[in-house]
């Protein structure tokens, strides 16, 4: 593959850090994880937290509806022109890993329409523990699991849990109600991920999305350095 194309015209591939006009493109962060783990809620919280300091946009990958995009629109976390939904043909992991073309077009169109952008969040449709984002689509990926999905998920591992740049264990406020052992989840995650970071988060808690937002800011600082 010719990543450093020399032909004229729009970019052929989009892992390139620069846009056709030579400017640096936005940092792209993917959020994946099982159905109902809180990906959309985390995206909404990140938008509220970061929208005053950054120019950002969101791509959602709904499996059969536009519900995630519509949730974000209803919550008014961003102006509607900054939210795009991609249709995935019953295969959410295909659209973020094996055939990323529709998502690449969505991120490029957002940059063209409302750019310049600092950050684009790409939210996967709810999927299984093996779903990861292609490096051709995102620069960093967050995997979101929750305590109610079973406290053995970090131990089971899988590509999402073990390789994501950030693992969020979400809904920690529910742990006592569903009998999940937070300490065990944290220890298992640590064992699976070595030095890769883990955030235990409750969006209903006082600190909310702050720790994840700080991680995003650090990634962005590294991207623009």
């Amino acid at each position: 593959m010719h990543l450093d194309h020399t032909h004229h015209g729009p970019a052929a591939v989009s892992a390139d850090a620069h846009r056709p006009d030579g400017t640096r493109r936005a940092l792209r962060v993917g959020l994946g994880g099982p159905v109902g783990s809180g990906k959309t809620a985390t995206v909404a919280a990140l938008c509220r937290e970061l929208r005053d300091e950054l120019s950002l946009a969101v791509v959602t990958n709904d499996i059969y509806t536009r519900e995630d995009a519509e949730f974000l629109l209803r919550q008014a976390v961003l102006p509607p022109e900054r939210i795009t939904a991609v249709e995935t043909g019953a295969c959410p992991h295909t659209a973020i890993r094996d055939d990323i073309s529709a998502n690449l077009e969505a991120v490029e169109d957002l940059e063209d329409a409302v750019g310049p952008l600092d950050l684009i969040l790409v939210e996967s449709g709810g999927d299984n523990l093996t779903a990861t984002f292609s490096r051709g689509l995102v620069d960093a990926q967050i995997f979101v699991i929750d305590v109610a999905g079973g406290d053995d998920i970090p131990r089971k591992g899988g590509p999402g849990v073990t390789t994501a740049d950030l693992l969020i264990v979400n809904k920690t406020d529910l742990a006592p109600h569903v009998g999940s052992d937070l300490a065990r989840m944290a220890a298992d995650a640590k064992a699976q991920r070595a030095e890769l970071p883990v955030v235990l988060q409750s969006l209903r808690g006082e600190s909310g999305v702050a720790e994840v937002a700080a991680w995003v800011r650090a990634r962005l600082a590294a991207w623009t350095a």
Binding site: E87, T88, G89, C91, T94, A95, D98, D99, I100, S101, A102
Partner: peptide, 9 residues
């Protein structure tokens, strides 16, 4: 599997 978007149609 040629990555050209056909899977969604």
């Amino acid at each position: 599997r040629f990555p050209a978007g056909g899977h969604a149609h």
